[in-house]
Design a protein around this nucleic acid. Structure first.
Length: 477
RNA sequence: CGGGGUGUAGCGCAGUUGGCCAGCGCACCGCGUUUGGGACGCGGGGGUCGGCGGUUCAAGUCCGCCCACCCCGACCA
């Protein structure tokens, strides 16, 4: 609703991001430091993300449940790496109902512990496995530096927690979910992600192996956009999740956990947005089509609005918004909805009514070049096709951007040079010492080793020792 | 938690060496004219000047302390 222009991405990407979120009414700052209010337009996007993911979870045999917000402090302490990883960022409740609590309660930063406790009660036999449960929840992590959607004290996510009979099943589950996330990111959000495995230093606290989908933002920084962890038997041992196997012997279960959060909204914003504002991927867009009626007189208004209603009814399979605000000019509305990233805008004026046509403007192609003049006949079919092509263009554009900013430096000097303007795909020997040195010297961390990479012979970009795999290095959010 | 910065209307800001009634733009409300790429006129509403204390005849302005937020580092989905 503001006339103020956004900063350009190229001038100040960070300000562009912050201001856009406010102006587009995605979220607002809450009175508590580091907390955000997700406004209806932002939440609608999250709901569409939820809908798509939830359908995929259910189709692959998972069910939803809800576990408590409060976790006894002692639970966190049962898994050594887990507590070490999370202790610095816990919010702890020590008083309830005016009384000091006997045992402090942690506001969940993630739910492996309390769910592990429950699973130990529920699992007795190999017949009780697998357990495939997901929950949609909010969690709290007391972060030092926060940013809207990317890192807030409280955020919303889904966390899946599964328990299995064998190590192999757990690994299969972990990879199945990684694949599910990848499919969602690419086919719903048009965010090209790289699925891969995390280094030991970057893996989840308490996990045996962590997998990730990594996305490149338009400032070339990396964003970890979803994670899937194979927890091995770490949590099963900490919480005593045991079952009698087919040979009547006690075994520890194998567990996994995986999550995707409202951070993904940040990924969408920073993957597709431009100087004009947001560009919503059509399959997740809260509003897919906005109709802007144009008229001068009351007589014209009546004729135009009648047609607008007809068109709106024709397009009922899409998420359509009619902008009938009377105090604003069409020009203002055009800019307003472009800033909010609505994929298609349909303009209907007296001329269109007379000709049985509509003007369709496509958000990702600026100016007149993106305008289509369509017959009102079979409009829904035409629009469906246009939205599918829109998705394909977004994906292609984002993929091209990413690929043109991934470099394969031949030596460390080159590595240092390119890392401020892209990712490095380079051999790494696997030694955490090299990883840490690179981080200290360049601020770049290992993002992942892509999943299906073949072994090859090379030299570590840092120490020059033999290395078998290349790893993505980047500065990350 | 270290370094830097900012607090005056919803947002962005001005306010001189302390001085009369705390102002401007945008947004908001009313009326009228407008409306195919960010309209205009007229009229209006909205403030314990971040908080507490001090100096002074007089503090948005000077001094002290505190608080909050933002940016840069260490930590992170």
């Amino acid at each position: 609703m503001s006339e103020d222009k956004l900063p350009k991405q190229s001038e100040n990407f960070s300000e562009w991001y912050n201001q856009l979120i406010q102006k587009a009414e995605m979220a607002d700052y809450a009175p508590v430091r580091g907390c955000m209010v997700v406004r209806p337009y932002g939440w609608a996007l999250w709901e569409n993300i939820q809908k798509e993911l939830d359908a995929r979870f259910k189709a692959s045999g998972h069910v939803n449940a809800a576990f408590p917000l409060f976790i006894p402090m002692s639970f966190l302490e049962k898994e050594k790496e887990h507590v070490e990883g999370f202790a610095p960022e816990l919010a702890v409740v020590t008083i309830g109902g005016g009384q000091t609590l006997e045992e402090p309660l942690v506001v969940r930063p993630t739910s492996e512990t309390i769910i592990g406790y429950m699973y130990s009660k529920w699992v007795k036999s190999y017949r009780d496995l697998p357990i495939l449960i997901n929950q949609w929840a909010n969690v709290v992590r007391w972060e030092m530096r926060t940013r809207m959607f990317l890192r807030t004290l409280e955020f919303y996510w889904q966390e899946g927690h599964t328990a299995h009979e064998t190590a192999q099943e757990a690994e299969e589950e972990t990879l199945k979910i990684l694949d599910l996330y990848t499919d969602f990111a690419i086919n719903e959000a048009a965010v090209p992600v790289i699925p891969g495995i995390k280094s030991d230093a970057e893996k989840f606290a308490g996990a045996q192996r962590s997998y990730t989908i990594e996305a490149m933002m338009l400032d070339t920084k990396a964003l970890q956009s979803g994670t899937s962890h194979n927890l091995g038997q770490n949590f099963a041992k900490a919480f005593d999740i045991q079952y009698l196997d087919r040979n009547n012997e006690q075994q520890f279960a194998w567990t996994t956990s995986w999550g995707l959060s409202t951070r993904f909204i940040g990924a969408i914003i920073m993957t597709h947005g431009d100087d004009q504002g947001l560009i919503m991927p059509p399959r997740l867009a809260p509003i897919q089509i906005v109709i802007v009626p144009i008229f001068r007189s009351e007589q014209e208004q009546e004729v135009v609005m009648t047609r607008v209603k007809e068109i709106s009814a024709q397009l009922s399979q899409f998420r359509v918004k009619v902008d009938d605000r009377e105090n604003l000019t069409p020009g203002f509305k055009f800019n307003d909805w472009e800033m909010r990233g609505v994929p298609l805008r349909i303009e209907i004026g007296p001329r269109d009514v007379a000709n049985n046509t509509v003007v369709v403007a496509q958000r990702d192609i600026p100016g007149k070049a993106g305008k289509l003049f369509l017959s009102t006949e079979n409009l829904a079919t035409q629009v469906e096709d246009i939205l599918n092509k829109f998705h394909d263009r977004l994906l292609e554009k984002a993929t091209n951007f990413r690929d043109s900013h991934i470099f394969e430096p031949q030596d460390y000097a080159e590595f240092q040079k390119i890392i401020s303007n892209g990712w490095a795909y380079a051999y790494w020997c696997g030694d955490p010492t090299c990883e840490d040195a690179i981080k200290q010297e360049t601020k770049a961390t290992t993002r992942c080793r892509d999943l299906y990479q073949e072994k090859s012979e090379g030299k570590c970009i840092y120490c020059g020792e033999p290395a078998q795999y290349k790893t993505y290095f980047a500065r990350a959010y």
